[in-house]
Design a protein around this nucleic acid. Structure first.
Length: 793
DNA sequence: GCGAGCAGCGTACCT
DNA sequence: ACAGGTACGCTGCTCGCG
């Protein structure tokens, strides 16, 4: 039989003729789907003389079938670092596993691992690895080897987007047709059924024809990856419904044509057989959540602007159907084309990172695009637990989760800064503090000593003891990730920044960083399989110990320590050499894997008072200017999306005037000019919009708030608002309370000048100007109405 | 009845 | 639906005053 080689892309399973097959998506010269017979199983903690009893179990599955195990074997696994014999119970189908497990009167393990993932763990198979196999027809007879390739496969991509006719605001699947489909891959174009002069437009007979043509283009171009933006929730279901109604052929899948929705945690996915459907939207939300990207909103427009620096063509939602009716088809086509192009560019931008995330976390690409960082860490730990022959811990259920949530773990130390303007600052920080602590002190639920005596231990500041004898799973995996990243960063320095190799390696380094930084959170995550309160507490306790000791040492060495947060210290220095010497001194006392690094020297920095607490510094809020004149700003209103652009812009200009030029006169003039503009009504509403996310269903709030009031006005006007929506609102003239005055940006007609002066501009700039000697008192002259005139008198 | 003061809710940030 | 620490706007209540 001929040996063949191909890249592994994804795995799922099917049941046929009473047997379970792993279905592998492989990319060699062609892309193929092949099958490999593999039986599902779970583990039972029972002695081997229970085999017959287990084999005799009869269980009823969800679909009403009566099923039994097909065989039981004795296997060895490690529990708490000790070997243990267990029984491995094989079943005919993955869906038999939960049913049979339910009838087993002994402790069970590994019964809720997705079966395709189970197979990958057992084979130590990772996405984009090269798999060598022998096949007969579509059946893999034998898997010869599984190896990491030099380079990942080149994946062909295509992005798409649809436009719909929407005279009622939100398009109605049953009534409103798809007017355009745009695509952008090797070829790009727009399919529609009205005439356009644009060269990239193809005009067809009608809606049915454009859907079928799109289907045909996918077949011909045959992309591996299909990018969309919110395509799992909107474009694909819409296309499917319209196709059904029009009896159009629409089967984007590669082999069986199938497409299906799936839910992974809270995220909706849309699976396309044989391809990787990559919806950028949920990924952008996740990246926003972990702070990887910053965007005012998570619309394609806003994210494209933030990430690519490019904007969509300016067409409002309610203009789309008008352009279509009025016949400005060229503009609409252009708009649609740009949507697909931006989606494509965004996709190409994030695909290397996502591929590296997938291969680092050992999770298929499609699943990775729908995973939280916690799920990635969990997957990686399960993969390595399987490698080490360790039992995968159970997932917590029911009350246990809430007990964990209700007992939070003490976190980091933050030093109270003295407000003021400072010169010559040095910032030092611990590189990957928590990961390096976990590795240095071998922090793992299994190395944590319960009662037994041992001299070879690390004792945490909480009193918890961790064995030095064997390296635990968590520190072992983490150490591997950190080491790998160090090696890659060394190589990166040698490569040309514009080369494809650089992009790939940089993505890998980034993926390793994201994953390493998620381990501590995962240890303290209530739904984690590896949750350990003593471990998580020890990590933060060691963190606090190291940072407070560093502060004390710095003070002893004669530095003024201005501020510290978690893993960083801000020193005021007289000469740089002393800073570097101090750093070396600290490093000499640290464990090998820990390191204090120089983050940078800063010429000048501003720390402000906490609101209403004169003299008490605000934590997590500062601005500094580096020696390269780059300004670093943290925590100020100007980095928050729930402040208006006009206030943020003014605050930035004030900070620049102070940090760059040291000119308070200029700062004051900036504020004066802005206020004049506001009073003259010259500021466009867009600059006055405040963005706030609704983290609950709009009906579930008990208290009134401006964003909720604006959201309700949107609902009334037929605009979509749901849990997670980011509301843009302007404070208008109509109404008494601020909530009543809040109008959705789309509907706003005017603005409340006093609100923007007193509640947006003045508070955001005053806290900075105060550090320059302008005090609250001089502002309040003239009673409660703070006016700038009195302030500048 | 009214304004000041404050707790609590809610959001978004920092590391 | 990875963690905790923190700032702060707004609402809606209580309380003192008259």
């Amino acid at each position: 039989m001929k040996k063949r080689r191909a890249y592994f892309i994804d795995a799922s399973y099917i049941v046929k003729n009473n047997l379970t097959y792993i279905s592998l998506l492989l990319k060699g010269k062609d892309v193929v789907r092949l099958y490999y017979q593999y039986d599902p199983y779970f583990l039972v903690d029972a002695p081997k003389d229970r085999k017959e009893e287990l084999l005799a179990i009869k269980a009823t599955t969800k679909r009403g079938h009566v099923v039994s195990p097909i065989r039981v074997e004795e296997v060895e696994r490690k529990v708490e670092m000790k070997k243990k014999k267990m029984l491995k119970v094989y079943c005919k189908e993955p869906s038999d596993v939960p049913a049979i497990k339910h009838q087993v009167p002994y402790p069970c393990y590994e019964f809720s691992i997705p079966f395709a993932r189970r197979f990958m763990f057992d084979m130590q198979l990772s996405p984009f690895y090269v798999i060598t196999y022998e096949r007969e027809g579509k059946l893999i007879k034998k898997i010869k080897s599984v190896e990491e390739p030099e380079d990942p496969p080149k994946l062909e991509t295509m992005a798409f987007d649809i436009e719909t006719y929407n005279p009622m605001g939100i398009p109605r699947e049953e009534k409103d047709p798809i007017t355009m489909i745009s695509y952008c891959g090797k070829k790009r174009g727009v399919l529609t059924f009205k005439k356009s002069k644009k060269k990239f437009v193809e005009t067809l007979e009608g809606e049915k024809e454009i859907i079928e043509k799109f289907n045909q283009i996918i077949k011909e171009e045959n992309p591996d990856v299909l990018f969309g933006y919110n395509s799992a929730n909107f474009d694909l279901p819409y296309l499917v419904t319209r196709a059904k109604k029009l009896k159009a052929t629409f089967r984007l899948g590669r082999f069986r044509g199938t497409m299906r929705t799936l839910k992974k945690g809270l995220i909706n996915g849309y699976d396309i057989d044989g391809r990787v459907h990559f919806d950028l939207y949920p990924m952008m939300r996740l990246f926003g959540f972990i702070g990887l990207i910053k965007a005012q909103k998570f619309t394609l427009d806003s994210v494209a602007e933030e990430v690519l620096g490019k904007k969509k063509i300016d067409v409002k939602k309610d203009q789309i159907w008008q352009l279509w009716d009025e016949g400005d088809i060229d503009k609409l086509c252009e708009y649609s084309m740009v949507d697909a192009e931006l989606t494509s560019e965004l996709g190409e931008n994030f695909l290397p990172l996502e591929m590296e995330m997938a291969s680092t976390a050992k999770m298929p690409l499609f699943q990775t695009t729908l995973s939280t960082s916690g799920q990635l860490v969990e997957n990686l730990l399960m993969y390595h637990a399987a490698e080490r022959g360790e039992i995968i811990p159970l997932r917590p259920v029911g009350e246990a989760i809430y007990e964990r949530i209700n007992a939070p773990i003490q976190g980091a130390f933050v030093k109270l800064p003295e407000p003021g303007i400072y010169e010559n600052l040095a910032v030092l920080d611990f590189r990957g503090l928590y990961p390096s602590i976990i590795v240095s002190y071998n922090i793992d639920p299994e190395t944590l000593l319960k009662d037994e005596e041992s001299k070879q231990t690390f004792v945490s500041p909480t009193g918890a003891r961790f064995s030095k004898k064997e390296i635990g799973l968590v520190p072992r995996v983490l150490d591997y990730l950190i080491d790998m990243r160090i090696k890659i960063k060394k190589q990166l320095k040698k490569i040309d920044k514009s080369s494809p190799a650089y992009v790939k390696m940089n993505a890998r380094s980034h993926a390793l960083k994201i994953l390493s930084n998620s381990f501590y959170g995962y240890l303290g995550y209530a739904r984690s399989r590896w949750y350990s309160r003593p471990c998580a507490e020890s990590v933060t306790a060691w963190g606090r110990k190291h940072i407070t000791e560093t502060i004390e040492k710095a003070e002893k060495a004669g530095f003024q320590v201005l501020y510290a947060d978690t893993d960083s210290v801000f020193l005021i220095y007289k000469n740089k050499k002393e800073v570097l010497e101090f750093m070396d001194d600290v490093n000499a006392t640290l464990p090998e894997k820990m390191e204090l690094e120089l983050e940078g020297f800063y010429k000048r920095g501003v720390f402000v008072s906490k609101k209403g607490k004169e003299g008490k510094g605000a934590k997590k809020k500062y601005a500094m200017i580096g020696e390269d004149d780059r300004i670093k700003i943290r925590g100020f209103e100007l980095v928050r999306r729930d402040w208006s652009e006009i206030a943020k812009e003014t605050q930035l200009k004030v900070l620049e005037a102070i940090l760059k030029e040291g000119s308070k006169e200029k700062a004051v003039k900036i504020v004066r000019d802005t206020i004049t503009k506001l009073q003259e009504g010259k500021v466009p509403l867009k600059k006055l919009a405040i963005n706030t996310q609704l983290n609950k269903d709009p009906r579930r709030y008990e208290l009134a708030s401006p964003e909720l009031s604006a959201a309700n006005k949107m609902l009334k006007a037929g605009m979509p608002v749901e849990k997670g929506s980011i509301i843009s609102f302007v404070i208008g003239k109509k109404g008494k309370t601020i909530s009543e005055k809040a109008e959705p940006l789309e509907l706003a007609k005017d603005y409340d000048t006093d609100y923007y002066i007193n509640n947006q501009i003045l508070p955001s700039v005053m806290k900075i100007l105060k550090e320059l000697g302008y005090d609250e008192h001089s502002m309040k002259v003239g009673g409660k109405q703070k006016s700038l005139d009195s302030f500048f008198d």
